[in-house]
Design a protein around this nucleic acid. Structure first.
Lengths: 213, 213
DNA sequence: TATAATCAACTAAATAGTTAATTAGTCAGG
DNA sequence: CCTGACTAATTAACTATTTAGTTGATTATA
């Protein structure tokens, strides 16, 4: 019953702005997103954006912080259900894959951010990213101590996992388009679903971590 | 001696514009690169850019086509020195790694392009990218036929290789910064050089392609 | 009635692209 | 070896549009 069909509500307005901003920033990037277009999309006056988020950069920070928090929470929650490093690793990869697929703005935003070395990266976002990597890194380290993983360079493996997943998501339209061409014949996995891909990555990462004798 | 200290030369001017454009596009992205800034950087009048490249998009196409051609030529040239799939695969990864490291604009431009699903991707660039992947894919296929590779999904493996290498290059400054922090302790490979990384990736990719029994 | 939320209308700067004039190089004919 | 005409390269100054951000008034609500 509460909240008689939303009239004036700061929280609702803020959320509206953020969700529209997620859409635009992830599709067009930071620079190509105009505050006029954003205000039209969310149906509020442009001044509201500056009223709540001070300026464009402030809005971007709010967007990134929300998006990173979402994925971090998802992964941490799933992680707590497991205790063996190998299960944790699988859970990490699988959860990230699922999330990235159902929230495709995440890979788009992350890759954009990483491709210009955090030119506009706010400190908070930087911390979140390090925390996420720290968890991954820790899983591998504990696995090595227990003897179930060998020869890991966490940073490289991390990029193998999230780099690949992010690219598989963001390039979906391109891969579809490529599969329809017949001048160069390649299998671009246009019909693979995310579960297959995640399973394959999990299998291969585990194979990499086995003793290579 | 020739060319008495370069005065009026279309080719020189075009090259000047392109190399400045590579710098700006790769650092700031397409949208954030202004033609005024570009003209200042290359020391030519802004109208020259439009005289030679018609418009901003035309310049971008010229830039991307040159960059993609460079890497393609490098890889093809090295590829021809080998005949066994395993050597070809190593050569592909190693050459890409070396090139990406010495021409860091390539990873930046590529990741930006892939992160928005080719929103501004010209047809020619799309072809080049498919050709490069086709070579990689073909190496794996021939390897499988000969029995030296097993269980490959070329698209995923391709992104594992170039995704990881591109990210290792573009995130260098971020990884350096992270390694100086001590609130969250992680090894970000801040001191790894590209050869180590390439060797590790080669080793791991080969391990993945071994029979998993 | 006080305050928080909303808006229309504005500003100043930056932007991609244009135009018309001006150079500099080339090359044929004297 | 000039000269002048032709062309290609270059320029300054301009336009029209878009941009982030502001302001001061106006609502709604508690």
């Amino acid at each position: 019953m509460s909240k008689k069909i939303q009239k004036r509500d700061a929280e609702v307005s803020k959320a509206l702005i953020i969700s529209s901003a997620i859409e635009l920033f992830s599709q067009k990037g930071y620079a190509s997103t105009s505050m006029d277009e954003l205000s039209k999309l969310c149906g509020l006056n442009k001044a509201m954006v500056f009223y709540y988020f001070k300026n464009k950069k402030g809005l971007y920070e709010a967007v990134m912080s929300q998006v990173l928090n979402e994925i971090q929470k998802s992964i941490l929650k799933e992680n707590q259900k497991h205790s063996k490093p190998i299960d944790e690793l699988e859970s990490f990869i699988y959860t990230y894959a699922k999330f990235a697929c159902s929230h495709p703005y995440l890979p788009a935003l992350l890759l954009k951010e990483l491709s210009d070395s955090g030119a506009i990266m706010p400190e908070k976002l930087f911390s979140s990213m390090r925390e996420l990597f720290a968890l991954f890194s820790d899983i591998l380290k504990r696995g090595e101590e227990k003897g179930c993983f060998q020869d890991s360079i966490p940073m490289v493996l991390y990029f193998m996992v999230i780099g690949t997943l992010n690219l598989m998501v963001t390039t979906k339209p391109l891969r579809d388009k490529a599969s329809q061409k017949d001048d160069i014949v390649v299998d671009t996995c246009a019909n693979c679903d995310i579960d297959e891909i995640a399973d394959y990555i999990i299998k291969k990462i585990e194979q990499m971590l086995k003793d290579n004798k």
